[in-house]
Each structure stands twice: as structure tokens, then as C-alpha cells.
């Protein structure tokens, strides 16, 4: 098949990471690409190659980077620059001990709702822990613990919410993309089956209703004939 079967139901974790890497993040570049307009025209021919002709991100942002002035770029680009030691990544505000603690409190207090974490919280936190470990102001092991707690609490809520699965619809606000992706094959499968059962039950009861109508419209004579023939068959 053109698309492998494990990818037909849902996205792979790597693909989820790809989608998350398209998001923007703030960085402190360590190099300056902003060239002064004057005095540079006499340089060697390699000047043209410094031009960032990008397709999917705004090339002019990269061409105007000034060291230690914060700019916003796509996450994949920030990770690439970080690997080359050309930038420092600014950790987003929700990934601090204080705000994660507040989020945990919210999750514990409200058992039926999910806290307003960004949709890419799981993937982003994992990536930043691995690749931008020196850019954190809080100790990483504490952040990791809290992220783990959040994961477990939300997972418990999702599993408890599974009993609300029905043939009509579900509303799950504020669920992260990774969480949705994990649950997707299971939930879609079950709800499809529930839908089929529901449709089958309805057809059955519609058929029964029709049969009942016919009996009543034909009068008592035939009804009693049927009784007689039914009883004669059992003998």
C-alpha cells in the first residue's frame, strides 16, 4: 500500500513532532546576520550565498538577526541553530515550575475538565529538555517531575472520560495533540461500532413497529387464524 497501515489510522509520534516543529519559538541568536547596507558591496562573490532564500519561513527575519536581540523563528530552525551553537532558546512561559504547579492544582481541583495547556505541551517539553537543557532557569528534574505528573493526571481523566463514549458525539476541549493522537484509533473504532449497533437496533425496532402496524390494520380474523396455524404447527 502507498501508505503503511499503521499510518492510516493516526499520525506517528514523529509526524506529531514534525507538526509541532512548525510552530514558532523565541530565540537569542548568537550571530549577527544583519549586514550594514553600505560598505559591503566590495566583498567577494560569496556574499550572495549568505542570503537566506527560505521557502516556508520568513527569510528576512533570518537575514536581519542581531546577536542577543530576541527574534521568533520556527522551532526546527531554532533547534538546528542551537545544534550549531548559534543561538540560545528562550523557554516559553508555561514551562516553569511555578506555572506548572498552578496547572497541576487546576487539574486536581477540576476532575471533569482539562487545564489550558498549549496543544503541543508534551512534545515541546520533551524536545526542549533534550536539546535546550542549558537554557532552562529552573532545574530540569523538577520540571520533568511535574510534566510527568501532569501526563498521569490528564491520562487518568481521559480514561475516565471514556465511559461517556456514545454513538453521537464527544466534546474534549484543551486536549493536547499527542493525547488526541494516542486515543484516536481506539475512540474512533469504538464509536464506529456503537454507531453500527445503534443503527442496527433502530432498524430492528422499525421493522417490529411495521409488523405490529400491519397486524392491527388487518383485523382480528386473520390474527386469530395465525394463532390457530401457529398452534397447529407446534403439535
Amino acid at each position: 500500500m502507498s501508505l503503511p497501515s499503521h499510518l492510516q489510522e493516526t499520525f506517528s509520534p514523529e509526524e506529531v513532532q514534525f507538526v509541532v516543529e512548525n510552530q514558532k519559538i523565541k530565540i537569542f541568536p548568537r550571530i549577527t546576520t544583519n549586514r550594514r547596507r553600505n560598505g559591503r558591496t566590495g566583498d567577494a562573490s560569496g556574499d550572495d550565498s549568505n542570503q537566506w532564500k527560505m521557502l516556508t519561513v520568513d527569510g528576512s527575519v533570518l537575514d536581519n538577526m542581531v546577536a542577543m536581540r530576541s527574534t521568533e523563528v520556527a522551532l526546527w530552525l531554532a533547534l538546528l541553530l542551537k545544534q550549531q551553537s548559534k543561538c540560545n532558546i528562550i523557554i516559553p512561559g508555561w514551562l516553569t515550575v511555578k506555572s506548572l504547579d498552578a496547572m497541576l492544582q487546576f487539574e486536581k481541583r477540576n476532575k471533569d475538565r482539562f487545564g489550558t495547556l498549549p496543544w503541543d505541551w508534551q512534545v515541546l517539553s520533551e524536545i526542549l529538555f533534550k536539546q535546550a537543557a542549558d537554557d532552562f532557569s529552573d532545574p530540569i528534574h523538577e520540571l520533568r517531575n511535574r510534566i510527568q505528573d501532569l501526563k498521569e493526571i490528564r491520562q487518568m481523566k481521559v480514561l475516565q472520560g471514556l465511559k461517556f463514549m456514545n454513538e453521537s458525539h464527544l466534546q474534549l476541549d484543551n486536549l493536547g495533540l499527542m493525547e488526541i493522537n494516542e486515543m484516536r484509533p481506539f475512540i474512533v473504532d469504538i464509536m464506529d461500532k456503537l454507531r453500527e449497533f445503534h443503527a442496527a437496533v433502530n432498524v430492528q425496532s422499525a421493522v417490529d413497529d411495521d409488523a405490529g402496524d400491519e397486524d392491527m390494520s388487518m383485523g382480528t380474523g386473520i390474527y386469530s387464524d395465525r394463532d390457530i396455524s401457529a398452534s397447529s404447527r407446534t403439535h
Binding site: 519561513v57 530552525l77 538546528l80
Partner: peptide, 20 residues
């Protein structure tokens, strides 16, 4: 050269992403 190759590196990475 490292500085010069940086745009090239990023452009190639981006091209791979869009091709994917």
C-alpha cells in the same frame, strides 16, 4: 565558511521538510 554554510544547511533542512 561555517557562517556561510549556515544558510545552506538551513535551506536544505527546510527543503527536506517540505518534500516530506
Amino acid at each position: 565558511n561555517n557562517n556561510r554554510m549556515l544558510p545552506l544547511l538551513c535551506m536544505e533542512a527546510e527543503l527536506e521538510r517540505i518534500k516530506f
